[in-house]
Amino acid sequence: MDVLIPLLLLVLVGYVVGTWIETQHFKNIRERERRTRNLPALTMKLPLASTQVSDVTLVSGSVVVSVDYFKRFVMSLIQLVGGRISSYETLMDRARREAQLRMKEQAMQWGATSIVNLRMETSTIANQNKKNNLGTVEVLAYGTAIKARSL
């Protein structure tokens, strides 16, 4: 019983604070996505043939995010029966969108008109404490920013 109480407390704190942080983060992401909407990021290798390119550079954005204690707890329960873990899906969604936004913001500062060959890379970050390994990921988004000559 003595072990159970701190665990439940952690789960509860994780749920309340974690959910709040996530809601704030999504709100922030949506707002920044609106602001960067007119900078297209394409996964195509080359810009359109009609584009008059004046300058190119490599841009990247990365973020490390982790899940809260509540989600980790839910995950361990789901793992008993298997199935979809939607709480981790939102984590990855957040990470990818955040990394893309950082890349786009860097490109905008440089004066890019579009980004081509967008690539994403995901890697798990290992903690010294083996138990906490689950749920800390780094997402890196990188691409080639293009500055087009205005016609």
Partner: peptide, 18 residues
């Protein structure tokens, strides 16, 4: 980062380091 693991969210220290 261990503390932040409880609440989730971005681990700024790691982001900067990487």
């Amino acid at each position: 980062a261990g503390f932040k693991n409880i609440f989730g969210g971005e681990l700024k220290g790691y982001t900067e380091l990487l």
